[in-house]
């Protein structure tokens, strides 16, 4: 995975709370393979009317926000379904960072597993950032080393789980690390089978 250190990029405001993963990627698009790409269906039903025309005042459709890589939303972004395709849609569209006061637990883990930074800010800072973007602010700098976002004359600290921060900074994938512990896993499984015989499912 590509390491995430500092990102200076166009930011897009999304002044909505509770944007669940069903809205980030509607279920009917989830049959496609990853190779087909998910970017074009990101927030499809918020962006596109039933007749196929774009929703003019939806922020992602604003030409000023074209090429945005940082998304700024309100609380509980990515709650609901565990569908990792919500993160595929964000990543394939070009987003590397989502800024919000809170995130769904499963969604934020999925973000980190795809090199996308879920940056938690206070509700007050989030509102200042949204107001700055509404006033025409465009590019922000997200510094993961310092856990700091700079937007014009504003600067905000953000929070991210320290383990996730390290993982993102280095672009690490869990699986290689886990496979280095194969012996410990085998020893645990053997001892556990004796300690908890009831945990083994009875024959099929």
């Amino acid at each position: 995975m590509e390491p995430f250190r500092t990102l200076t990029a166009r930011a897009c405001p999304l002044p909505l709370a509770n944007v669940d993963t069903d809205q980030i990627i509607p279920a009917r698009f989830m049959k496609r393979s990853r190779a087909e790409g998910y970017g074009e269906v990101l927030m499809h039903d918020l962006r596109v009317r039933e007749d196929g025309t774009p929703v003019a005042d939806f922020p992602l459709n604003d030409p000023v926000r074209a090429g945005a890589r940082v998304l700024v939303a309100r609380r509980n972004f990515g709650g609901g379904s565990s569908r990792e395709s919500a993160v595929y849609a964000l990543a394939d569209y070009g987003f590397r960072c989502v800024v919000a006061p809170s995130f769904g637990d499963i969604f934020s883990a999925n973000c980190v597993n795809n090199g996308v930074l879920p940056a938690r800010v206070s509700e007050a800072d989030g509102e200042v950032l949204l107001a700055w973007l509404a006033d025409g602010g465009q590019d922000v700098t997200v510094d993961l080393e310092a856990c700091r976002i700079v937007a014009g004359n504003n600067a905000f600290d953000f929070a991210v789980d320290p383990v996730w921060r390290t993982k993102l900074l280095n672009g690490w994938d869990d699986i290689d690390l886990t496979l280095s512990h194969t012996d410990a896993i085998g020893a645990f499984a053997a001892a556990d089978r004796l300690a908890r015989p009831w945990a083994t499912p009875r024959g099929r």
Binding site: R83, E84, I106, A109, N113, I175, I185, A189
Partner: peptide
């Protein structure tokens, strides 16, 4: 608890 696809593949490969 629910997990994402990356975690599903991790569990499939390691049971952890």
């Amino acid at each position: 608890f629910g997990i994402g696809a990356s975690e599903v593949s991790h569990v499939l490969m390691t049971q952890t």
